[in-house]
């Protein structure tokens, strides 16, 4: 029942949001170059810190934008939410 601050819409009910997991594991630049262990780490392993976690959320029932958030997993408090900056397409 938290309020989450969407960088686009402002504070909204948590039930409007979708949790998208860790924001710190990008898709590998060249998956074919990875061994089975390294690939498994990308597919399955995500940080699971007890404390601040950098995560992806989307305002699924609102503007539908994804953003990055830093949330303390001990308290569920959001420490920051920021828009994702576009990068040059690969």
């Amino acid at each position: 029942m938290q309020l989450i601050t969407c960088p686009w819409c402002g504070p909204r009910e948590e039930t409007e949001f979708h949790y998208g997991g860790a924001a710190t594991v990008p898709y590998p630049a060249d998956p074919a170059a990875l061994g089975d262990d390294a690939w498994a780490r990308f597919v399955f392993v995500r940080p699971n810190p007890k404390g601040p976690a950098t995560e992806q959320w989307s305002h699924a029932a609102g503007c539908r934008r994804w953003f990055t958030a830093v949330r303390d997993t001990r308290t569920h408090r959001f420490l920051a939410t920021v828009d994702i900056q576009p990068e040059v397409p690969r």
């Binding site: 029942m1 938290q2 039930t15 979708h18 976690a53 997993t73």
Partner: peptide, 13 residues
């Protein structure tokens, strides 16, 4: 609850 958390507390929804 979908988000991770160590707080032994979930959303009432």
């Amino acid at each position: 609850d979908a988000p991770t958390g160590y707080g032994q507390r979930g959303s009432f929804s």
